[in-house]
Simulated assay, not measured.
Amino acid sequence: MCPKAGKIDQSSKSTAIVRSERPIALVGGGRIGPDDLNMTLINVSKVVAADGGAIPLMDLGRTPDAVIGDFDSLDSSYRERIPKDRLFPIREQDSTDFDKALRNVETPLVLGVGFLGGRLDHQLAVLNALVRLQDRPCLLLGEREVVFHAPPGITLGLTPGDVVSLFPFQRVTGRSRGLEWPIDDLVLEPNGRVGTSNRALSEVELTVDGPGLLVMVPRAALNQVMQAFLSGKTGLWPAREE
């Protein structure tokens, strides 16, 4: 049984730039596959661009509901076509545009595209923010996989043989059902044992004892993962204390 879902902190809601009771798409300026935007946009009510992520959206004919970032990657020819009340510059350079955008939206689930692939340092910074902003559920769509920060508990109806990779960003323990190599009684940590290249035997149930674990499943499982997060049964981690 997965832990009970948490509630959105009302204080954080009051400062959000974009809010929705349905999933929100977050689009970055990195590598975007031919079907990535279509797969994402059909599942959301609002679209937020992280800085240069506005460019592929507008090339597709979609003006973002908001653009958040330091605006160092958004060409003026695009910026001038976006209503000024949809532009939200955040000039500080201590965080990525993904971080700036994710922490300023309020939604049950974010679908992120354009953040995986390309430069490795950019990807690592995105994954760092994904784990650090642990109270904001977000799925990242990559060329081959869907990546997300493991909630307290999740059940996925995967296809037998599907690759399920687990990578810890900090020390974490947990339990599993339906994996070829269970994680029960294991300690996963970034400078020790990791859980990459595991495989699903049937329905996979994963329970973890604390935040910090990234999960990677096949891209074809996007709808399964979305449904799990939107079911209200995964639980939520509290906001991290700074």
Rank of each mutant, 00 (worst) to 15 (best):
E80V: 14
V172T: 09
L179W: 05
C138R: 06
R144K: 15
K46G: 02
G117F: 09
S176T: 02
A54G: 07
R119I: 07
D162A: 14
G114C: 11
V147N: 04
V105Y: 05
Q170M: 12
G174F: 01
H149V: 00
V105R: 00
S77V: 14
P137C: 11
V110D: 03
S76Y: 04
T107F: 07
K100T: 06
S76H: 11
V126P: 02
S45N: 13
R144Q: 14
Q93N: 13
L179C: 06
V131K: 00
R175G: 10
G161I: 10
Q134C: 10
R171S: 15
P64H: 06
V47Y: 01
P89S: 07
Q123H: 01
T96K: 05
P137Y: 11
E92T: 09
Q134I: 00
F169P: 00
F115L: 03
L158E: 07
L127I: 13
S165F: 06
L111C: 09
D72H: 07
E145K: 04
L102P: 12
P137H: 11
L60D: 07
D97K: 04
D97I: 04
S76N: 11
A50R: 05
D70T: 10
D99G: 08
E180L: 10
S165V: 02
N128D: 14
H122L: 07
H122M: 13
G114E: 12
Q123P: 00
V113C: 14
R119C: 02
D51N: 11
R81W: 06
I154M: 11
L133P: 04
G157Q: 13
I82M: 06
D97A: 08
P108S: 08
G161M: 12
V67W: 00
T96R: 05
V147L: 12
A66W: 12
V67C: 11
R171A: 14
G53F: 08
R175T: 15
A129T: 11
G114W: 14
P108Q: 04
N43G: 04
V67S: 05
L109A: 09
T155V: 15
L102V: 15
R79C: 06
F71N: 08
V172G: 13
Y78S: 08
L166Q: 04
L141R: 05
V131I: 15
V147G: 00
E80K: 15
D97W: 01
A150C: 15
F71V: 09
P64V: 10
